[in-house]
Design a protein around this nucleic acid. Structure first.
Lengths: 202, 202
DNA sequence: ACCTGAACACCGTTCAAGT
DNA sequence: ACCTGAACACCGTTCAAGT
């Protein structure tokens, strides 16, 4: 057996059943070895998961901007980053538990810096724009992934907003009562955020 | 002993040492009873934490908007919501683990609907604006709280951005290398987001 | 250099038995 | 109605002993 084998097998288990299913005993069973052998190769569970996260992060491909206008291109980076994170369902949770969200930003950061520069932003304002977009994306994905595994919500937006017409705005009440389309909402909020960031300084 | 006593004691333990420190055995020790008595009162650990979250959420005060312009008032709601969440350090994590982020929105939702209406938005666009702000706030707080307990980050923005001057923009490189001011960044991103949301439709 | 089993110190939970 | 201790089925980790 091999440190490589341990990591690969662990990655398979995580991919299939999530990080919480990765117990040292289950991993040992899958490897066909004693539990304690694992410790020789990876130290302990914590550093095993660290290695898994690092490896997944390293495998994420470059992010490229598309679109014509600067605003479109910055927004496209945000969408691509979100796509990447959603494509690795357990990555976000693992990174979050490990406090490594900053590390998760890096792949997109260089691209964002470039596009924000193209848009004419410089210095501190450019840095703020880059970080604002990054945090928005990661935060959005965190909330989004969270909603997926959410149980039925009590009180629930539906009950609250169907009964009482929200300030006489039936369409709004229906929209808030209805399900949330994360894809559309993300597109809207990123467009708004980027417009605000690239727009005239306050 | 009393269900009320159990909840109060559990809340105290969580407040002091975080949710992960709330073990049934530790709680029993604090209560001076057998571990198994707790089960009679609260079912199990999961529903105990559920009750704790629900209770904290219920204790959150009303959110009021301040400021003159609609944009300022919407942004003030976002800031107030963030403040509330940061004032309950463990709440956000517990809500997140439980998939209840939607539930956490509700206290601010009515206020946001009102302010967005005042700003002239109606129907689906108003609903989108409300939800965009909500998700931005909760997502931002999640990332922010995460950063606090983050260990030193390797590679780390600093190393990456001091050496190579980012596209000949020294000020930007320094800003990205330096520490992040969450308060300021939140203010900036919310202002931008709200401006974009309340601005002219695309 | 690598693997092993036994043991330790934890968990949450169930259950039959008490009062 | 409420509390108890014993027991079960899990954890991660350490360690001395093997090859």
């Amino acid at each position: 057996m091999d440190r490589e084998t341990v990591l690969a097998t662990a990655a398979r288990l995580v991919k299939r059943h999530g990080p919480q299913a990765l117990t040292m005993r289950a991993l040992a069973a899958e490897l066909g070895t004693a539990v304690t052998s694992i410790y020789w190769h990876v130290g302990n569970r914590e550093s095993l998961l660290d290695a898994l996260v690092e490896r997944t992060l390293a495998d994420l491909g470059e992010i490229r901007a598309t679109g014509r206008t600067p605003a479109q291109r910055v927004a496209s980076v945000a969408r691509a980053l979100r796509r990447q994170l959603l494509d690795h369902p357990h990555l976000v949770a693992m990174v979050h538990e490990r406090g490594l969200t900053e590390r998760m930003f890096l792949p997109a950061q260089r691209t964002l810096v470039h596009e924000v520069h193209e848009a004419g932003l410089r210095g501190v304002r450019a840095a703020e724009a880059v970080r604002a977009v990054q945090i928005h994306v990661v935060g959005h994905v965190l909330v989004e992934r969270n909603r997926e595994r959410a149980p039925v919500q009590r009180p629930g937006e539906d009950e609250l907003w169907t009964a009482q017409a929200a300030e006489q705005d039936g369409a709004l009440a229906r929209a808030l009562a209805g399900p949330l389309d994360p894809e559309a909402l993300f597109a809207t909020s990123v467009r708004a955020l980027v417009a605000g960031l690239l727009g005239p300084a306050p």
